[in-house]
Amino acid sequence: MIDMLRNLALLFIGAALVNNILLTRFIGLCPFFGVSSAMETSVGMAGAVVFVMTLASSATWVFWNVLLEPLGVGDFLYIPAFILVIAALVQFVEMYLRKAMPGLYRAMGIYLPLITTNCAVLAAATEAVKPGFFKMNIAYGFGFGEAVVYTLGVAVGFGFALISFAALRERLDVAPVPKIMRGAPMAFVTAGLLSLGYVGLSGMFGI
């Protein structure tokens, strides 16, 4: 029992910090640079990503283990199958939230459609059923619980990096940056320095 909890905790920390999907794996950079110019939008996006990513990975894990793997078509159908499952799921979640929880819908509604094309969701879903693509040391065949904890870790890491980067960019707006570097180039250099901090974490906790 203790062993299992320890494994799950390591999986979570490994996914969230040591193998941070944005800053050490470069997955999901479009929203990272797209919405991070304001704090408010980053918080909304981070919440929506945590929600959708966990849900999408659970759905694709079940889809893979119930349908694709037993039929033996997983290896060549997983790309179109997963992206369709994710797109359909996002549409349903959006419709459900609009009807049932209007408050929550207003808070994260506009970010939901954007997430369909967020590569981080597809990457986390793929990694949960076919571990090893990210070359993590603790990759093994995930059970359902592990898949959910892993995806939750990835999503929390994504949100954390996004929000901290948004805070940096707000400060950067008032900094004296040379004219040619203003805007996007400086944002990239800042992201590089932030990423340097995450690289420093590798090897910690034995992961």
Binding site: F26, M186, F188, G192
Partner: peptide, 22 residues
């Protein structure tokens, strides 16, 4: 070594965009 690591990619690409813009 930093050139091959993740941070190096961000920083070099930042300068590349600046160059392209120039």
């Amino acid at each position: 070594g930093i050139v091959l690591l993740f941070p190096g990619a961000f920083i070099i690409f930042g300068f590349m965009i600046a160059g392209a813009r120039w």
